[in-house]
Write a protein that binds this DNA or RNA. Structure first.
Lengths: 403, 403
DNA sequence: TTGATTTTATCCGTGTTGCGGATTAATTCT
DNA sequence: AGAATTAATCCGCAACACGGATAAAATCAA
């Protein structure tokens, strides 16, 4: 039970100020007042403390001039060098590492196209450790300057415990990857579901910056689900992040089963008889579908319908204003998305027919790693009870419109 | 954006104190200190204010004697007469009204066994208004002494807007029942999903008092889902409460469809050819099943399997430590529950095999209405950001063990 | 060039809050 | 009756947010 004392009060307000600065780029103290609804005095005091801690910096005068009469505003921004963090994304066939600064700008990335699929946890931890150390070195930084590492991976992840309950990339269950990496790197290391990282990335940098509620469905080798609810990442009880692929779809033994076996890239590739090379398989399959190959079209359509079915159920449960379907290749194919959309439209309950906007988003690997970095920064910013929340851009927009 | 000022601070702590008093019956100030982790001074100040506002009362000295040496503790408890609220439950064949005091003790109930199914909203509002007025009168109270009314009903409900998007008891969509009843009764009236009311009732009075995360699945004429997450009732985006019956199960057109058409009491009754009278249908069906009637057994098993399928998916998403299956008749039949349990066990992902405890609970109608009353009280207590949360009974348990 | 104007940021005094330590209150034990 | 013990309150302190006054830094007008 969190008791409220002046310290908590300050923590909350400091977080709001930090969050306002992060979200609204270089921003003056008056603007922060409007956004946070804090008094000028309080904002002044808090920003002074933040400047003192070198968490923010004031933009050199003259850099930004806004046509006004009085004393010019001093713009404040996050101090990029206040901290450095590392984000890692583990995919079945690739490890991506990114080093970012305090603004979550990527300083350096490293991609290792390695099949880590079904490796032992020790081997994977080895690879991650190497990758992180190398990436830090390449960015001309020291391990001692890194404040945290976050690893995103598919599967069922219990962030609070740092344990991966189950994942397509681990043979074992209940891998304590968080503790292991913390030990190896000598730096706090956390883990999370990869879909959560993407959800956070979308919330911080992507197309959901002004949304407090949305879902991210990642369609890659495996299927992930990230839920942002009330401006917070939603995790199940005991902090568990779900694996969308574990959902049951259709009638088992009658063309149904786990979603992972019906709508993931792996399953689609497995459907077609054609022997497709493992690396470029999906690109090839999509091209064949484009050329009219019946098998490939059918496989894509079946996958789209299966995922559409699941998404309809997610809409029934969460009624989010937006769902972002995210993936590399398949998710951007109309042969996949059209059946998906049609299935969603057909199965969503009538009362929720129009609440959800379904969009696709293709991105590069670095987004994932950036999300992982953001996950660590989010904690550094020191959210007291959470509230990564977006919220009133309105105050700022109004300000801009005035000018 | 909620800015933190001393007022919020006080509100938070006052709520924690109120909540501790509500939860732990008559309780002394020292005990409140232990539970809330507030200082004795603060507790003293807050309880003094609460006593001054007549929200709590001190138990007459000598009533409770705990074998101690020093100055005896003065026990505090909610003042039952601090407020009165009304809870209403709308079911397809019945309206239940309950008047409770500030402790959520039921003072008087009224059950109207009326088929309101498919009536117009105006007629139903009429019936509710009459029921509420009569129940208040029978309890020897005045309308002016009622601080709020909450109505629970099946379907998709948007509490914040007071709108029922869709419900088996309304022919229309988007019924603004909240505003209508507020107008008629001259008292703040809210509406919510009936499953949410039960979830709250279980959290406050039932078997989930010490749980912060659990699901309630109500199995009656229709199917409801109440989610308690992090000590808070979970609602979808824009405050929408889902209708479990809207979930899709199995393959559509292949023995699958909406869960409401497969696992609700209505659907089970519809499955069997036997012409069953509408009122006692389920009781008769269960007796026949007990006697070995194949049709009835098959219908119950099919329903159990369908609901088990849905519950497995809910476990995948929420991983709650407990799911309470609640209902009148069917839910307590092993012919229904055994297939359900078996299906859940078979379909739940291996990594989540043992996280969820599945229990059933049969109750009388008044529980629902009591939950509705509690929903209003919850707001009167003035939770600042929510935190209906349970939490550390531990402090109290330790105390008791010491003695 | 100089003073008036305007906007921004800080300083000062006030009120509220929670807290630790001392104090008072109300019992039981000896 | 006095000592011991536990409960509740009182007092002084520090932290905080806030409103109003003040200082700072520019533009505008003569």
């Amino acid at each position: 039970m969190k008791t409220a004392d002046p310290e908590l009060m300050r923590a909350i307000n400091r977080f709001h100020v930090m969050d306002a600065i992060r979200r609204h780029g270089p921003v003056s103290r008056v603007q922060i007042c409007q956004v946070t609804e804090l008094s000028a005095t309080t904002v002044s005091a808090i920003t002074a403390a933040l400047l003192d801690d070198r968490l923010i910096t004031s933009v050199p005068v003259g850099a930004v001039r806004d046509a006004g009469r009085g004393r010019p505003r001093v713009m404040l921004q996050l101090n990029p060098d206040a901290a450095h963090v590392v984000g890692v994304r583990l995919a079945p066939d690739q490890i991506t590492v990114a080093v970012t600064n305090f603004c979550a700008d990527i300083l350096h990335t490293l991609s290792l196209p390695i099949r880590i699929d079904r490796q032992t946890a020790a081997v994977i931890a080895d690879l991650v450790e190497d990758g992180v150390r190398r990436c830090i070195e390449d960015a001309n930084l020291e391990m001692s300057g890194i404040l945290g590492v976050c690893v995103g991976l598919p599967g069922v992840v219990e962030r609070s415990a740092g344990v991966c309950r189950q994942s397509p990339i681990f043979g074992d269950r209940d891998v304590p990857l968080g503790a292991e990496l913390t030990r190896r790197l000598g730096v706090p290391a956390s883990i999370d579901s990869d879909a959560n990282l993407v959800a956070l990335a979308e919330h911080w940098f992507g197309q959901a910056r002004d949304l407090n509620d949305f879902l991210v469905v990642s369609v890659e080798r495996s299927l992930g689900l990230g839920i942002l609810h009330n401006g917070e990442l939603f995790r199940g009880a005991s902090g568990l992040s779900p694996d969308l692929g574990d959902l049951m779809i259709g009638s088992p033994g009658n063309g149904g089963g786990r979603l992972a076996d019906m709508a993931s890239e792996i399953s689609v590739l497995g459907e077609t008889d054609a022997a497709l090379p493992s690396g470029r398989g999906m690109a090839l399959l999509l091209r064949r579908a484009e050329e009219g190959d019946e098998d490939c079209l059918a496989a894509l359509a079946a996958a789209g319908e299966a995922l559409g079915y699941a998404i309809a159920n997610l809409i029934t449960l969460f009624a989010p204003p937006k769902i972002i379907i995210a993936g590399r290749a398949m998710a951007s194919s109309e042969h996949f998305m059209r059946p998906l959309r049609e299935t969603v439209a057909a199965l969503v309950p009538p009362s929720l027919a129009d609440v959800t906007d379904l969009v696709t988003r293709e991105w590069d690997d670095s987004i994932w790693a950036r999300g992982a970095a953001a996950m660590t920064l989010r904690e550094l910013y020191g959210a007291p009870w959470g509230t990564t929340g977006p919220a009133p851009l309105r105050a700022l927009v109004e300000l801009r419109d005035e000018a």
